[in-house]
């Protein structure tokens, strides 16, 4: 895939919603193109901001559904279309999965809580992370051919994580901060042992204090 074609798909690659073939085609170009890699860093930020429910946005009022429940009694349903509503899906989006998770992990009271304030933001972040599919780009830069160089990672901590918590986590994983926090709270990390970089990345991604973690270009 050439640069122009990649540019067209880059945002979707950042969102993690390309199919496996497109993902690997984009990835192999991105591995060799610094411009595209830098763009991916920006897109990660755009995605995080868009995925967040802003503090100035109104809360969703569950009473809307209650009102609709009381209204549907008197409403006639349209006539059936031929062959309606049966199809098994070949493809399952993370959005659907997230919705499922939301459904079974939140009690009605929690759901109500979720709608107001900070927890809504957390849900937005969960969604942001959730939109990364299994085949999503995990590595913005290939580690191949750099085996002897120290590996670099990019992380963003969640809001409210204390400096002590950050320090304990980073030290525990054998990483050091080489740059940041930048304007968007991004830290560049250096992993002392390149061989361990995948393990470290996995550990970071799974950690409760981490908003986003990815491989990155060395600063």
């Amino acid at each position: 895939m050439n640069h122009r074609e990649t540019q067209e798909l880059l945002a979707w690659y950042a969102a993690g919603t390309l199919d496996a073939d497109e993902t690997s085609a984009v990835r192999s170009h991105v591995d060799d193109c610094r411009t595209c890699r830098e763009e991916l860093d920006d897109l990660a930020i755009v995605r995080a901001v868009v995925a967040e429910v802003g503090a100035d946005e109104p809360a969703y009022d569950p009473a809307i559904l209650e009102r609709a429940m009381s209204q549907i009694d008197g409403i006639e349903q349209a006539v059936s279309a031929p062959g309606a509503a049966t199809r098994s899906s070949e493809r399952r989006s993370i959005f659907a999965v997230f919705a499922e998770w939301l459904q079974w992990s939140l009690t009605p009271n929690m759901a109500r809580l979720a709608i107001a304030g900070q927890f809504a933001v957390i849900l937005g972040l969960a969604l942001a992370l959730g939109t990364m599919r299994t085949e999503a780009p995990e590595e913005f830069v290939t580690a191949a051919g750099q085996a002897n160089q120290p590996a670099h990672l990019t992380v963003v901590f969640k809001n409210g994580v204390t400096e002590l918590e950050m320090r304990e986590l980073l030290l525990g994983l054998g990483t050091s901060v080489v740059a940041g926090p930048g304007a968007t709270g991004i830290y560049q990390l250096r992993v002392a042992e390149p061989a361990r970089v995948s393990d470290v990345l996995t550990a970071l991604k799974a950690h409760q204090h981490i908003f986003v973690a990815a491989r990155s270009t060395p600063p």
């Binding site: 999965v97 992370l129 299994t134």
Partner: peptide
């Protein structure tokens, strides 16, 4: 993060919606 783990483990929601 636990949400992520759970997300990867879920299935068939699209069918459920339909």
């Amino acid at each position: 993060m636990s949400a992520y783990v759970r997300l990867s483990g879920m299935a068939d929601n699209e069918d459920k919606d339909i």
